[in-house]
Each structure stands twice: as C-alpha cells, then as structure tokens.
Amino acid sequence: MTCEEAKTRMTDYWSRTLGEAGETEFNAHLASCETCRSEVSRVGALWQGLDLLPLEEPSGKVRDRFYEMLGAYRQGLAAAEARPAKRWWTIPAWQMAAAAGLVAVGLGIGYGVRGNGPLFGGAPAEVSQLREEVANMRQLVALSLMQQQSASDRLRGVSWAYRAEPSDREVLGALVSAVNHDANVNVRLAAVDALRRFSASPETGRAALQSLSKQTTPIVQVALIDLLVDLKDPQAAPELRRLSGNETANEGVRQKAQWALERLQ
C-alpha cells in the first residue's frame, strides 16, 4: 500500500469500514510509515473533537455523518460564494474562516496533509492548533448551514451554533442576523434560543433588545422576552413597559411583557 492509497482509506479506517483484510493491510502500512501514522492520529483526533466519534455508535453512521457534514460545508461554501454580501456583513472574516475550514476539511479527508508529530502525545502547541481547527470547523458548519436555502438546513446550522465557542463572534453575528432577517419564523425562533450559548457576551442582550423593538412576529417576540428574562437584563425594562402598554401589539405579547417586567424587578 502506498501513502497515497493509505490517505484515501483513512476515513474508512476510522469508521471501521475497511473490512478485516483491509484493516490488516492498512495497519501494516502504518507500522512502517511514520507520516501516515501521525496523520491517522490527527484525523482521529479531529473526528473526536467534532463529536463525530462516539464510541458506542456503529461505524457506518460516523462515516455518514462525517460526509454529510462535509457535504453541508461544501454546499454552504458554494452558496456563500454564489450570493456574496447578501447576509454577510463580515465578508473578510468569513473568507478567512473559510480558508481555515478548508484546511480542517483537507485534514479530515486525508488530503493536503503535512505530517506533524503524533497528536495524542504531541506538544501542547499542536494540541491547541487542533483545537482551533476543530473550533473553526464547527464554526464553518454552523455558518455554512445557516446560509442554505432550505429552512431545515438553516435550523441544523442554528443547532450547530450550540457547539461553537461561547466567544465566537462570527457565529454570534450570524445568529443575530438570523434573528433579525431570516425569512422563516421557525429559524428566527431557533436562533433566539441559540443566543443563550452566548449569554456571557454583552452584545447578546443588546441584540435581543434591539431585535425585540423590530420583530413583528408574536411568537418570536415571546421567545425574545424569555431570553431577556433569562439574561436578567435590567435595561430591558423600558422596552418591555412600552410593549406591555402598546395597544396595537399582540395581546399575548403584551401579557408576556408584563410577566417579564415582574420577573425583572
């Protein structure tokens, strides 16, 4: 087996779909090749970092999920390139993230490889580099799915946002943008809930409050009020008071605003 062949079989190896003979052959190559050995550990760590490798899960599924994710990523990238600047007010950052993500994807499927030391026993710098790659990839999956035409895919993107780092401003920005501009009510709803992941950021409360004054869909307004109560944001009180006294507002929203005011006091 050549290194080239080994690289193309790496995901099969991790998903245990090589078969017994294939695995023996692959292991024989690993025993004699330092480069592939370290690459296998990198790919494995990447998978584990992405929560794609729960031990109890049957192997085929891991593979499916991995490719599904790659597919979603590529689809999202293609869509983002085809529709530039439509929803992205942070294009340069997005492109940077895309480049970083491509590296991560390249590693994941066994191309674009540079053999570093074995990861599990590797230097802390390498571990943190990997951690960064994983964070980038999660960010990429979340961001690219949130760009899809299908509301179901955008909902998946929003649930990926829960896996982003709580300090990830790109994902927070994408969620805020979804809350304010997504055409689908259910995606807006889910995005409001996902903002809880970023409750430590002062931007979150500000964005929720701003959005509340603009939203006209009652069920989304209710979700925003729940979020503001959970954030215990005292600055929300004036807007809630305005809303509860606004006779043109939805009756349920007014009740909810009144309820929230009592909770914030």
């Binding site: 179901s152 909902l155 009510v185 259910n186």
Partner: peptide, 11 residues
C-alpha cells in the same frame, strides 16, 4: 434522515 424540523403557533 438527519433533517431538522420545527412547528410553531402563537394561538
């Protein structure tokens, strides 16, 4: 398989 879904109503 793998699709997210969501159903909502105010009233």
């Amino acid at each position: 398989p793998g699709k997210a879904m969501s159903f909502s109503s105010m009233n």
